[in-house]
């Protein structure tokens, strides 16, 4: 189970590396500097924003509506947010710190901790002002999300000049971990490639030309499939080929449910097809639900283009009037 940040290693196990981390030394210099100076809330505390918040949160607390309504205390940070208009009062130090982290590749942000203390209720009409300080910058840490630095800021929020609350906020500025497995699974999976060698190259050459070629012993004329270097009947290495007519019947079959293989979509029927010529080959039975494949079912050869490089022979049931279904 992935538990995001709660299972995060908060020591990266590489103290030597961190000690010699010149970026960390640079980042550390920002501790104690202001993160926001002279910040002013974009809006006075107001009923519509309170109502929108309560609607979103599903919060029906009567204390948050009516003539003497207070704002939900947990809205504290919301009153300080810049919104689409950009950050209010963010300090040059904070901008520089973030630019340094961005430049080092730690461009993603996720909030990890929020600690708020509420000193007095906020009510409609209160004017919000705030100051914030960069409290700490962590050493480089490796988390499930990726590697980066935690930045903790502490904000003092005032309402009409009086202390209203404090807000400690920790974010992780990080470079996302490579999600290789995910990326690979997003690529469309391809069927496995056939292993083509000098003993079976002629067969695959035939498939390219939409033919199923059966080997025939030039000594005893026995047909064989799949292709082999010698005759199982007389041992002769001499052979030529016979092109299969394409007619066959299902000699046996299985339905694959599990495990799923990339590029295959279970359940599907794998048939052992007895060709009219007498040899048997393994292939898919297509064009019919997997649970309607039956032993003895007449089938006809066709070629399935799997991707731009690969075609494979498959078999489709023939209906009662002899046409392929």
């Amino acid at each position: 189970m992935s538990d995001g940040l709660s299972e995060v290693s908060r020591t990266d196990g590489l103290p030597e590396e961190s000690k010699g981390d010149s970026l960390y030394e640079e980042l550390k210099a920002y501790e104690g500097l202001p993160a926001a100076e002279g910040g002013v809330g974009r809006d006075l505390v107001n009923e519509p924003m309170i109502r929108h918040w309560c609607e979103a949160m599903g919060d029906t607390n009567p204390a948050y509506s009516g003539p003497d309504a207070m704002a939900p205390p947990t809205m504290l940070q919301a009153w300080t947010m810049g919104g689409l208009g950009g950050h209010q009062g963010r300090s040059a130090a904070q901008e520089e710190l973030f630019a340094l982290l961005d430049k080092a590749g730690f461009s993603s942000v996720v909030a990890t901790d929020c600690e708020q203390e509420y000193l007095r209720p906020l009510r409609a009409g209160d004017e919000i002002t705030f100051e914030a300080v960069i409290e700490s910058v962590s050493e480089r840490k490796t988390t499930k999300l990726g590697t980066g630095h935690f930045v903790t800021t502490r904000m003092d929020v005032r309402a009409n000049g009086e202390p209203a609350g404090t807000h400690r906020f920790r974010i992780l500025k990080f470079a996302p971990a490579r999600r290789t497995s995910k990326k690979e699974s997003q690529k469309p999976a391809r069927r496995p490639r056939p292993v083509v060698n000098r003993d079976n190259a002629g067969y695959w050459k035939g498939v390219e030309e939409h033919k199923v070629l059966i080997q025939r012993c030039t000594e005893c004329s026995v047909l064989r499939f799949p292709w082999l270097p010698g005759c199982n009947s007389c041992g002769s290495a001499g052979w030529d080929t016979v092109e299969a007519s394409g007619e066959g019947t299902v000699f046996s079959y299985v339905v694959m449910h599990h495990p799923p293989f990339p590029a295959f979509d279970p359940p599907y029927a794998v048939g052992l097809i007895e060709l009219a010529e007498g040899v048997r080959m393994i292939s898919n039975v297509v064009g019919v639900p997997h649970d309607e494949v039956r032993i003895g079912m007449p089938v006809h050869l066709e070629f399935l283009r799997v991707d731009e490089e690969l075609e494979v022979p498959v078999f489709r049931p023939v209906d009662s009037v002899g046409r392929t279904a």
């Binding site: 919060d59 607390n61 204390a63 939900p72 947990t74 909030a111 990890t112 901790d113 929020c114």
Partner: peptide
């Protein structure tokens, strides 16, 4: 912020409208 709001709501839903939040400290994971 939404998580924070939901946690606050959870507490005041339980303790009633007379209850007043003093501190909310949360850490996010999954």
């Amino acid at each position: 912020l939404t998580t924070n709001g939901l946690v606050g709501r959870y507490i005041t839903d339980h303790f009633g409208p007379g209850a007043v939040l003093r501190k909310v400290a949360i850490r996010l994971g999954a």
